[in-house]
Simulated scan of single mutants.
Amino acid sequence: MAVFITFEGIEGCGKSTQARRLARRLEERGVPTLFTIEPGGTRIGGDIRRILLDARNWDLSPLAELFLYEADRAQHIFEVIDPAREAGQWIVCDRFYDATTVYQGYARGQDPLFVASLNRTATRGLTPDITFLLDCPVGAALARARQREAEVNPAGPSGQDRFEKESEAFHQSVREGYLALARSEGLGGRFRVLDGMFSIERLENEIWSVILPLLPALPSKKPCLFPTS
């Protein structure tokens, strides 16, 4: 049976690292797995991602931003996620609709009922089975994100950092929004909130302890498919 796993958190919380590590670990156990991202999990989505992350687009309206995320998501569901589910693959996704609920709803002030309606339409009602929320203090997370940018682009900023340039108050709103979402699900809900300040190895092991009981007994290894776009 396919399992749909998402990773969420503020910029620099470590979710992308953990999502990729989980996908690789599932592959090693022979689980047919798809790793993907939002925004940008398709060719069309890659073009949308460049618009959304480009710091030159500082004047992008909150409503236009919301529609771009939902357009990316609709294409992602159609082209990547639904086919993977039909094929019985496990899916590990770096961000999904919770990010839109928090960034465009809580932090940008868009009507939460409107955002929820668009999310349902774009996803065709699909909900993750498990969502790992890596919670991290804003100052520490942004410092990590800026260090990562410096390591990837030592010659200077790439320009693909529009959200990292937002104020700490914005990122604090995002963090609080994520925690409110997790609380709304209650105990036994799909959210697993983990301390993003833990070491990479400890986080990986805590995530694996949640996933391990769900693993099927598979006789042989099968490839992990990573998007090429």
Rank of each mutant, 00 (worst) to 15 (best):
S158R: 05
Q160I: 11
S158D: 10
G156E: 12
L142T: 01
G139E: 11
A180W: 11
V138W: 04
L187T: 03
A169H: 06
E168C: 07
S184P: 02
V210C: 09
G186N: 03
R175T: 02
R190V: 02
F191S: 01
N153K: 06
I211P: 08
A180E: 15
I211H: 03
P128R: 07
G156K: 11
S167V: 04
L134M: 09
N205W: 09
F163G: 05
T131C: 12
E176M: 14
G189K: 01
A141M: 13
R146I: 15
G196T: 09
A140N: 10
V174K: 09
P128D: 08
E166F: 06
R183A: 02
E151T: 14
E206H: 01
A145G: 04
N153Y: 15
N153A: 13
A150K: 14
L194K: 09
S167Q: 08
A169L: 07
R146M: 15
M197I: 02
E164A: 01
F191P: 03
W208C: 13
A141P: 01
L134V: 02
F191T: 08
R148S: 11
P216Y: 15
L133R: 02
C136M: 14
L194Q: 03
R202Y: 14
P128Y: 08
G177S: 13
P213Q: 10
Q160T: 14
E151A: 11
Q147Y: 09
G156N: 14
R190E: 01
D161W: 09
G156C: 10
G156Q: 06
E206Y: 07
L187S: 03
G177V: 15
L212V: 00
R144D: 06
E151F: 12
V138H: 05
Y178L: 05
A150G: 13
A143H: 11
E201F: 07
A182H: 10
F198H: 14
V152D: 11
V174H: 09
L214D: 05
R192Q: 15
E168S: 05
R192N: 06
R148A: 10
E206T: 03
A140G: 12
A145R: 00
F198G: 15
G139N: 05
I200F: 06
G177T: 12
A182D: 08
L187Y: 00
F163V: 02
S209C: 10
R202S: 07
D161V: 02
L179D: 12
R175H: 07
R144K: 05
E204R: 05
L142V: 06
I211M: 08
A140W: 07
M197S: 10
L212E: 13
L215E: 15
D195E: 10
P216F: 08
G156F: 06
D135W: 03
E185I: 01
E206L: 07
A140H: 12
N153G: 07
S199Q: 13
A182Q: 06
L187V: 01
W208F: 12
E151M: 14
R162G: 05
P137M: 12
D195Q: 06
S167D: 00
P128S: 09
I200V: 09
V152P: 09
F198I: 06
P128E: 07
R183F: 00
A155V: 08
S167C: 03
E168N: 11
I200C: 06
D195W: 12
L187Q: 00
E149S: 14
T131N: 05
A169P: 01
G189A: 03
D161M: 10
S167A: 03
L187P: 01
P213E: 11
E176A: 15
G156V: 05
